[in-house]
């Protein structure tokens, strides 16, 4: 009990644990663990430069304003584009990582990106298909009822389809209203 100085007794002795658990105590010495001390100089990394060469920047690369320069190496996946790109670039150029606006704008841009991309896919030979892309067709083969028994997350899983289908319904409503308004204007 914590009301006295003694620690509650353990159910097994070190000898019992060593006999039951492979490798028990192999890293017993805290000073002899791979990340001890946390910061250490002189590790061999394989690098043969002081400052890496600069990767070529083929188009303006957005970066945090907390960086003094573009990093020597960077990812080139999915450059900025569309309205989401405008929002993302604004978030990077205007707000530091310390500002909530930076991250909330990036999250908002993610949602804009999803809508833009879904709409754009409708004009391609492979439009988005929520049925195949969500993987829900796998449900019947993987014990959907038994797997969810007794879990607390079942209470909010109803929200998942709303998040997935919601933007499509919203886009449909917007498109329907726009088309209806255009038809009405054309008739008058």
């Amino acid at each position: 009990m914590p009301y006295t100085a003694d620690k509650p007794p353990l159910p097994e002795t070190p000898e019992q644990l060593r006999a039951r658990i492979p490798g028990w105590g192999a890293d017993l010495d805290p000073a002899d663990r791979p990340s001890s001390p946390r910061e250490v100089r002189g590790l061999k990394t394989g690098a043969h430069w002081d400052l890496p060469e600069q990767q070529e920047e083929h188009q303006p690369r957005e970066r945090s304003i907390e960086h003094a320069r573009l990093t020597p190496v960077f990812g080139t996946s999915v450059p900025l584009k569309g309205l989401s790109g405008v929002v993302r670039r604004y978030a990077y150029e205007r707000f530091s990582e310390a500002r909530a606006a930076h991250w909330l704008l990036l999250i908002a841009a993610d949602r804009v990106d999803a809508v833009e991309s879904h709409l754009a896919s409708l004009f391609t030979r492979r439009p988005d298909n929520p049925l195949t892309e969500t993987g829900v067709l796998a449900e019947p083969s993987y014990h959907p009822v038994r797997s969810r028994a007794g879990r607390v997350d079942v209470r909010h899983q109803i929200l998942d389809p709303v998040i997935v289908v919601g933007p499509w319904v919203l886009a449909g409503v917007v498109v329907y209203r726009r088309v209806r308004a255009m038809v009405r204007r054309a008739r008058t």
Partner: peptide, 25 residues
């Protein structure tokens, strides 16, 4: 992804490399 020579990599903090992520420090 880490460079091996920045301030952080030179101290073993490979996951905190400063030379590979322009989007965030």
């Amino acid at each position: 992804i880490y460079c091996g020579t920045c301030y952080f990599c030179a101290r073993g903090l490979y996951s905190n490399c400063h030379n590979v992520n322009p989007n965030a420090t």
